[in-house]
């Protein structure tokens, strides 16, 4: 499967990656090669095979619904790009 610049732009948008046309053009070749390459999977004999999500087919372990973590809000906010009054700052969402 070959992808053109426009298709790359669409994937980049879904991926939340800013990308101009020049960059999209650069990615188009490599992405097309990768999609071609993984098409080898079409030849696999997988009739009736169950998909495998975990190497040991282990189920997710459950734990009691109890609070175990201490409050470290200050530590976590100290590494944020922008905070004020205990809140994370982002550009205005509602005008």
């Amino acid at each position: 499967m070959s992808v053109d610049t426009e298709h790359v732009q669409r994937i980049a948008e879904l991926s939340r990656l800013a990308m101009d046309d020049d960059q999209a053009r650069e990615f188009a070749g490599g992405l097309s090669d990768i999609f071609d390459f993984v098409e080898q999977l079409d030849g696999a004999d997988i009739e009736g095979v169950e998909p495998m999500a975990h190497p040991m087919d282990a189920a997710q372990r459950l734990r009691p619904d109890a609070v175990t973590e201490p409050d470290r809000r200050d530590d976590y906010q100290a590494i944020a790009p922008a905070v004020e009054g205990g809140l994370y700052l982002v550009p205005r969402v509602i005008e």
Binding site: I11, E13, S15, R16, L17, A18, F27, G30, I34
Partner: peptide, 20 residues
């Protein structure tokens, strides 16, 4: 904020794999 932080923060191979 999302798209430019990610567009500027990630290198080409990481972007390629995210897109794949």
């Amino acid at each position: 904020l999302y798209t430019r932080s990610r567009g500027e923060g990630f290198g080409a191979e990481v972007k390629r794999r995210i897109m794949v």
